[in-house]
């Protein structure tokens, strides 16, 4: 550390002496650093204007044209991308809408089908019930008819039996219409209270 310090102080001292020398030399030679030479100013102007003209024509114009072309291409690409994205978004929305519609349609169809099936089932049930009732009714009516027929048959048989029995009893043929009517009216009288059943 001490040696470094020594080195630095030494260099500083030498620098001071050297600077003093320089000052002396400069004053002796009277270096006119702050005196602009008109000739050099003209040269600077000429060189600068030449440089400006040449660079404007052959460097900046093509360079900036290329950059601007690239910027325009980039802008266009960006615009295209944006348009494509918008179109895609539109398409997606459309498809989603269509999907939703299809789903709704399907749901509706399902509901309709279910309702139709329900109606059909109810109808069929109704029909079967009606048919069953009808059949029962008919059967009942048939049975009634059969019964009535059987009763009529039985009655006729009973009339016949009664007449033949009575004929046997009174020894003669009681086969006149009058007799038959008599018995029949009797049986009807019998039947009347029973008919309330």
């Amino acid at each position: 550390m001490r040696r470094t310090l020594a080195t630095l102080s030494l260099s500083f001292a030498s620098a001071m002496s050297l600077l003093a020398q320089e000052e002396h030399a400069a004053s002796a030679e009277s270096a006119n650093l702050l005196d602009p030479k008109v000739g050099l100013m003209f040269w600077t102007l000429i060189i600068f204007v030449f440089l400006l003209v040449v660079l404007s024509k052959f460097a900046y114009k093509p360079l900036l044209a290329a950059v601007e072309a690239r910027e325009a291409a980039l802008e266009k690409a960006l615009g295209d991308a944006k348009r494509d994205r918008d179109a895609a978004a539109l398409l997606l929305a459309e498809q989603q809408k269509a999907l939703a519609e299809a789903r709704a349609e399907m749901q509706k169809a399902l509901n309709d089908g279910r309702a139709a099936a329900e109606t059909l089932r109810a109808e069929m049930l109704e029909k079967v019930k009606a048919e069953g009732a009808d059949m029962l009714d008919r059967t009942r009516r048939e049975m009634q008819a059969e019964k009535e027929k059987a009763v009529a048959e039985l009655r006729r048989e009973a009339v016949d039996l009664a007449i033949s029995g009575a004929s046997k009893v009174i020894g003669r043929n009681l086969d006149s219409a009058t007799d038959r009517a008599l018995v029949e009216s009797f049986l009807s009288g019998l039947d009347a209270p029973k008919g309330a059943r």
């Binding site: 440089l51 660079l55 052959f58 900046y60 093509p62 360079l63």
Partner: peptide, 15 residues
């Protein structure tokens, strides 16, 4: 001039 004109042309070509 040399560097910038060369660079400008190269930029133009490469673009």
């Amino acid at each position: 001039c040399g560097l910038l004109i060369f660079a400008a042309n190269a930029t133009n070509r490469q673009t």
